[in-house]
Computed example of a mutant assay.
Amino acid sequence: MKRSVGQILGRGGIRIPLILWTIAVLYPIFWMFLGSFKSNAEIYRNPWGFPETINWQNYIDAWTNFNIGSSVFNSFIVTIVGAVLTLVLAIPTAYAIERINFRGSKYLFTLYVSAMMIPMVLGWIPLFFLLSDLHLLDNIYGLAIVYAVSQLPFTIFVLTSFMSTIPKSLEEAAAIDGLSPYGVLWKVITPLSMSGIITVTIMNAIQFWNEYFMALIFLQSSENYTLALAIDFISSEAQYTNAWGTLFASLVIAIVPVIILYAIFQKRIAEGMTEGAIKG
């Protein structure tokens, strides 16, 4: 009986804080979702209650008056280009560091790992002038390149841990069958590292989608704004125009793709991070 009571208390001591934390995290999102369907008058009159009627006008205003549609498109472009470019650069680099024995390979890996410790803010000013010289300032593709480079150390670090456990005998067998080193990389190593690749790609995509400060620095024209900048602009306007419902609708538009992406790949992300931790 004592053991049963102790187990109940032990489980309650773990679960109750988790439940409270879940409520604290989900309730503001739920409140924001309800607010996106309210008029401004209803938000002031009944901020914590359910909407009296489902009002889609806030979403229409966000999409048309504040040009959220263009910002969503820009964020999709930046996220996709940045995530793909990160993989194109990171996969061969991780393979070379892990599989090809050359002088300085360990020091190169240490350099990439050390780069993870350097705050990105230290490079913002040099990057601003570099993008300006390359005529990539105020360009969403230039921003995508910056995003890709910023996530290279983390991506390489994760992928090398996955590639280190792949038996070299598979590469030798593929080479005997006539595959070139590039063929071995893309047809053998890459498919076997797919769990790690999917994990880092999703994490990078979420990072790129939500990023604000570099977009604020490197983008200047409103037509090139990403979703984070557009929401910041709407937030500033809401203080003077009372467009709080439009702001809530814009926030819902921003978080729904992330929630859907994470919900679809949640199991794969958890497996990839666990597997990567064990392999690392």
Rank of each mutant, 00 (worst) to 15 (best):
L179T: 01
M163S: 06
G142L: 06
L170S: 12
V184E: 02
T201I: 09
N204K: 08
V200M: 12
V158R: 12
D177K: 02
A175D: 04
I156F: 12
A205V: 06
F162V: 09
I145H: 10
I156N: 06
E171P: 02
A205G: 06
I166L: 11
Q207I: 14
I189R: 01
D138N: 13
I206E: 03
V146P: 02
L122Q: 10
D138Q: 08
I202A: 05
I145Y: 14
F154S: 12
T201F: 07
T155H: 04
N210G: 06
D138G: 09
L152G: 12
G178V: 01
S195E: 14
T190R: 14
V188A: 02
G123Q: 12
F162M: 07
L152V: 12
P126G: 03
L134Y: 03
Q207F: 15
V146W: 02
S169A: 15
A174R: 04
E172N: 11
A144T: 06
V146I: 10
D133A: 15
G196N: 11
T155W: 02
Q151G: 02
P181F: 00
V200T: 14
I176Q: 00
E171T: 01
V149E: 07
V158G: 11
D133G: 12
I198H: 05
G183P: 01
S150Y: 14
S150F: 14
G123E: 09
L137S: 05
T160N: 14
W124E: 09
P191T: 06
T190P: 07
L192A: 10
L127T: 15
L134C: 04
D177I: 02
L192M: 12
M194V: 10
L192Q: 09
A175N: 09
S132A: 11
F208A: 08
F208E: 04
A148E: 05
Q207K: 13
F208D: 05
F157A: 13
L127A: 15
G178Y: 00
Y182C: 06
W209C: 07
H135T: 10
I198A: 10
T165G: 15
E171L: 05
W186S: 11
S150C: 13
H135L: 11
T199D: 05
I145W: 13
